[in-house]
Design a binder for these strands. Structure first.
Lengths: 233, 233
DNA sequence: ACCTGAACACCGTTCAAGT
DNA sequence: ACCTGAACACCGTTCAAGT
């Protein structure tokens, strides 16, 4: 019972694999899937990897970078459908599918969507996504600036939708915030806030699906209809 | 030197005013203005108010609620210009002005904008803002659902713009993230990501002002041009 | 170069006890 | 009802020292 190492037996922990950025991110993903993003901390992660927190700083600059790396890893699940074969006519449907897939991936991890809103990722999977959206937008007739700025707007909007709707359904505590907003809107007196009062059912109505679809169309229609500043002036 | 209370002299601290939600939020605002949102913690705030953290929980549910209250207080600075007198023709300019004012207020406190992205406020000033945007949108010809969902989209987009652009300019550490993204985009090889490579200058170009204006027009154009789901089907 | 122990300087939240 | 002290259970990050 006092043996220090058993080279053959007892391999419950596979002999502590060497640290590496890849391995660290994989462990972080595991913790997130099982315990949520809020448990993906330097300390908890170090514990999981059987080392001290200080060791992680060789591979990861800080906690924000760690979360960004986890997000990028997850972005590998986004379906970029039909990655290259043409079919020019249905660019809009393809773009919608890509963004829906992106939204669904984020839906699975609301907290990650929240953090993506605030810290854009920069990994390989993110680049692939941006590339794909750019191609589809330009296929749809968007100009240079329209496509470039459009990517940003579309991804941001999809991220925000995921963060909000997903939170609203799952997160135990954050539901309170949404309830507070709904309640505040509902309680708005007709005298002080007539418009809110008049629009009230609609203000909080709509399934995630409906909101997503409408939001997508609003943006695509708007992007194609709105020229970039220097284009004409 | 051992006196317990001096009723007349030494009023550096004005005799510890009674706790109240209002007073707590005011103190929180002060800390934010002087030290940044990240210092607006229950413990720091309690210290400022000369009490223990536990005492604050009588008035504020948790830290998120505290931040939301601070945001709402700040929203009082948003210029709702011309609050009621007609001038129907220029609804678009008025709406633009309101959203610009909103963005500017958030610009002053990037971190707060970040947190607003994630936790919608629900206070009186927020309601006033929603009310105003609703009125202007419907004056512009938006239908019921268009106006209702449009408010959400417009405010979200403005918030995100503020959070991003503001952070990019001021925040010492968060600039790294943006740099990482820019660098990743710039380093995208032409072979693997031809579109990114081709669109590259445009992807990160544009002043905050230009981006804001374009984003606003995209949304307003899109909102007015896109009917709500059940409207026709 | 990589890894570590230990420390520094913090957090949010709860609870039993007081007034 | 409000306020408090004290505790519980955590954090991120740095640094000198080791290998």
């Amino acid at each position: 019972m006092s043996s220090r190492r058993e080279p053959t037996s007892r391999r419950d922990r596979p002999a502590k694999p060497a640290l590496s950025r890849q391995w660290i991110v994989a462990a972080a993903l595991g913790i997130m899937r099982e315990e949520g993003l809020e448990k993906v901390t330097m300390r908890r992660l170090a514990q999981e990897l059987d080392t001290g927190p200080a060791s992680l700083y060789v591979y990861v600059a800080n906690t924000a970078a760690l979360h960004a790396a986890v997000l990028d890893a997850l972005l590998g699940d986004v379906d970029l459908s039909g990655d290259d074969e043409g079919g020019d006519g249905d660019w809009r449907e393809q773009l919608r599918a890509v963004l829906r897939s992106y939204t669904l991936v984020l839906f699975a991890y609301p907290q990650l969507a929240r953090s993506a809103l605030v810290a854009r990722p920069s990994g390989e999977n993110y680049l692939r996504l941006v590339e794909r959206v750019l191609v589809l937008l330009s296929r749809g007739g968007a100009g240079r600036e329209q496509a470039a700025w459009g990517v940003d707007t579309l991804l941001q909007s999809a991220t925000a939708t995921a963060a909000e709707q997903a939170t609203r359904e799952r997160d135990p505590a954050a539901t309170d915030e949404w309830n507070a907003t709904v309640q505040a809107l509902g309680a708005a007196s007709e005298a002080v806030h007539p418009a809110i009062s008049a629009y009230m059912p609609a203000l909080v109505a709509g399934s995630p699906e409906e909101r997503f679809r409408w939001g997508f169309d609003v943006l695509v229609n708007g992007i194609l209809a709105t020229p970039a500043p220097d284009a004409s002036a």
